[in-house]
């Protein structure tokens, strides 16, 4: 699998010394993509979902937002995507204020496919909304579906697919615009563990092929430690970041990474941070 065979890959590197190159690139590319400073969000019903959130996402990061349900992970993602305004604080993009927002792909917890449309129409949607004709988009749709391993399902209807396949279509839809930032809101939380492991591995491969930045929301310590180059641990009421954990090992990682000390150490530190926040609150 040389990278030049993959149509969506942006960089074509020689296959050798991949880990070393990745590490070097990470150092060079570590420019901030988006910086959240003192971001707060109060909903109309008075719920303070976020208060004083500081976060810097660097180009090329696989950043996990890890925290218990209700701590404001989805809210943070929606603010970054520009779906909602922050109540206070700033969200600054590499290219200046909000105008510098790069192209974004969004994957929700549910596949949220349009049930009346075929797989290819669902994947076509983002390009359609950007004014592409179906004919010109056809190749892109094919690429995106090949990337998620569903090249033969263009004409299928969503109801004919399993949960994991629907999620793959949802990811293809997010990738079809070749976004430089991929936002994922607990995308695999509703899937069985075996399917989730498979999609975890595929996601790391995808990220490398697309050469994009990923912000990945999860409530699973293990999932975040397996996938991320950085974990931002969040606590609830009000939502904020209480710890940041870095994992240097290059992506994509393989199953044996789950037995390495870096992984186990990250899991332990994330668990400590989460428990610390709970104890401090005298939780429940």
């Amino acid at each position: 699998m040389s990278s030049s065979a993959l149509p969506l890959s942006r960089s074509s590197r020689p296959p050798g010394d991949r880990a070393l190159l990745d590490a070097e690139e990470a150092k060079i590319e570590a420019a901030p993509l988006v910086t959240l400073a003192g971001v707060s969000k109060k909903y109309q019903n008075g719920v303070a979902a976020l208060a004083g959130l500081d976060l810097c996402v660097r180009t090329g990061d696989f950043l996990s937002l890890l925290g218990p349900s209700g701590c404001g992970k989805s809210t943070a993602l929606r603010l970054i995507a520009g779906l909602e305004p922050a109540t206070s604080g700033t969200i600054e993009w590499a290219g200046g204020q909000a105008s510098g927002r790069p192209s974004i792909g969004f994957v929700f917890q549910d596949p949220t496919l349009m049930p009346w449309a075929s797989v290819e129409s669902n994947v076509f949607l983002p390009l359609r909304l950007e004014g592409w004709s179906f004919r010109t988009a056809s190749e892109r749709i094919e690429e995106a579906l090949a990337l998620v391993g569903l090249p033969d399902f263009r004409k299928a209807m969503p109801r004919e697919l399993s949960g994991g396949m629907k999620m793959r279509v949802s990811i293809a839809r997010a990738l079809v615009t070749r976004p430089s930032l991929l936002l994922m809101d607990e995308p695999f939380a509703a899937l069985d563990e075996i399917t989730r492991f498979k999609l975890n591995d595929d996601l790391m491969r995808l990220k490398q092929e697309m050469n994009c930045t990923v912000i990945f929301v999860t409530h699973s310590i293990y999932e975040s430690a397996y996938l991320s180059t950085r974990i931002a641990v969040m606590a609830a009421r009000p939502g904020r970041i209480i710890a940041e954990i870095g994992l240097d090992a290059a992506l994509p990682r393989k199953e044996h990474f789950r037995r390495e000390s870096a992984y186990l150490d990250a899991c332990a530190r994330a668990a400590d941070a989460l428990h610390g926040a709970m104890d401090a609150k005298d939780h429940m």
Partner: peptide, 14 residues
Amino acid sequence: TDPNLRNLFKLYGA
């Protein structure tokens, strides 16, 4: 309508 599908339309500027 599914609120997340509406979010998607908003994200792509429809």
